[in-house]
Nucleic acid binder design. Structure first.
Lengths: 111, 111
DNA sequence: AAAACGCGTAACCATACGGTTACGTAATTG
DNA sequence: CAATTACGTAACCGTATGGTTACGCGTTTT
């Protein structure tokens, strides 16, 4: 049982949650202790702690223990693999977009 | 109840599943009927049908009914919003801000 | 040394998710 | 016009997910 699938898989999963994306955005301002991060969100500290664990497993953040504090720092490297994934589609929204506009407009928008 | 959160949210959620990412990759080759898509994966047709619904709601694919077939086509436009999101991090992995060497060293070797 | 702090983990709960089988429906075919 | 085809949807099931409260453990503080 592979507890950790492909690294890329963990990254996409981690990014799927809006709170985790906000944590990443917050960490762009610099390292922050776990408690300070939790203080920014309307959920409990343990909830944030679990989000941080997922982000750690995806290697999107790294932790440094400093005294009794745990500082979290952004590690954007894994985002590069997402960037690479998207690259394969980039040419499509440049070339086929005009084609598709007609297609989209003729659809009855449900959902 | 908000039936559809932010569009970007739906996109990130849609991309979180590996099967859905594979469906998108498959559709880069061109439109395909739902059945043909399902035939490519080791899961049942209804399972794929549900994946397609999520992709539709995220507007990553568009459907065209042609007779009794339903052709699905890639719509890469929503990926642009992901691309834009990543852009905010791109500079981090390009500049020294993304360099964690110092960070890691201070973690193992204090004093 | 005891108290307080900072943070992760365990246990638990409700809902979401991905899968299945059974069925419904619109379009084609014989 | 009945049978078949190509789908989506409904109902159901086990597991994952995100939240909570209770607790434990190492680190400061007093």
């Amino acid at each position: 049982m592979p507890q950790t699938a492909l690294p890329q898989e963990a990254v996409f999963k981690a990014l799927a949650d809006p709170t985790r994306r906000e944590i990443l955005a917050l960490l762009r301002q610099g390292r922050q202790p776990a408690g300070a991060i939790a203080g920014r969100f309307p959920v409990s500290r343990p909830a944030i702690s679990k989000h941080l664990r997922l982000l750690r497993e995806a290697k999107l953040v790294v932790e440094a223990r400093e005294g009794r504090a745990r500082l979290y720092q952004l590690n954007p490297a894994p985002l590069k693999s997402v960037d690479d994934w998207i690259a394969a589609y980039r040419r499509y929204w440049r070339t086929q977009l005009g084609n598709l506009r007609h297609f989209v407009e003729t659809q009855t928008d449900e959902a």
